[in-house]
Amino acid sequence: MNRSLLPALGLAALPLLAILALGFVPLMVVVVWSFWSWDPVTYWIRPDMSLAAYVAILDAGRWTVILSTLAKALVTALLCLLIGWPTAYAVHFLAGRRLSLVLLALMTIPFFTSYLIRSFSWRLVLGRTGVINTLLIEAGLIAKPLDWLLFSDFAVVIGLVASYLPFATFPLILSMRRVDPVTMQAARDLGAGFWTMLRTVLVPLTFPGLFAGFLFVFVMVAGSSTEVQMLGGAGASIVTVMINDVMRVANYPLAFAISTVVLVVIFGLVLAGNARFGLARLFGEGGA
C-alpha cells in the first residue's frame, strides 16, 4: 500500500463504516441467528449451532411459499422486461425529446401513491363487479363474472407488474442511451431487417439493462407483501408475509433462516448475472 492511499482511505472510512455497521452487521446477525434454536413452549431462543430452523422450513411446507415467491418474482421480472423493453425503445428511440420527458414523468406517477392504495385500486378493476367484468358482461362476451380475475395468482402478478414495472424500464432506458445509434444503422446497411437488427444488435447491447431491470424487479418482488395481501386468494402467501407470521411467535431463528435462503438465492443471482452480463457496464465505461 502506498502513501497516496491513506487520504483516500480517510475519505472512504465513514461510508465504509456505515456500510459495515448498517448493512453488513445486521445481515451477519440474521445469518448467525438462523442457526440458533427456538423452544416453542417457552418462545425462548438459545445460542446454538443447529439446523433446526432450516429443517422447520422443510417440514411445515414453508418451502412451497419460498418457491412460489421465487416463481412470482421470476414471472413478474420477465413480464416487466417484456413490457419495459419496448417501452424503453419507444421512449428513447421513437419519442422526441419533449414527449420522452412526458412519458418518463408519467411512469413515475404511480410512485406518488402508496403501494396499499395502488394495490387496492386493482380490486376495483379486477373484482366481480369491477371494471373488467362489468365491461365484458355488458359486451355480452361472458354471462357471469370471471372469478379468477381477483384473489388469485393472476391478480397478484398483475399487481406486482404494475407496481414494479418502472424498476425494469428505467435501467433499460439507461442502457439504450449507451447504444450508439449508428450501430443500428450499420446493421440495416449490412442487410439486417428491423427484427434481425433488434435480435443481433440492440438486444445484446442492452443486456446489462435487461439484467439490472430483472434483478431490481426480482428483489422488489421477493421483499413485497402488499400485493399478495390485497390481491391474493385465501391462503396466498409470500416470503415477507410468512416471515411476519413467524416473527409474531418470536421464532427468530426460523424467520432468519427463511431470510437467509432468499438472501443466498438473490446473491447467487447477482454474482451469476454480473459474471455473464457485466452489470457495471450499465454505468461505467467499457460498454460502448
Binding site: D180, T183, M184, Q185, A186, D189
Partner: peptide, 13 residues
C-alpha cells in the same frame, strides 16, 4: 449499397 459511417458504428459486442 454499403456505408462507412462517420462514427463507424462498429458492433462493440
Amino acid at each position: 449499397v454499403n456505408t462507412v459511417f462517420q462514427s463507424l458504428g462498429l458492433f462493440p459486442h
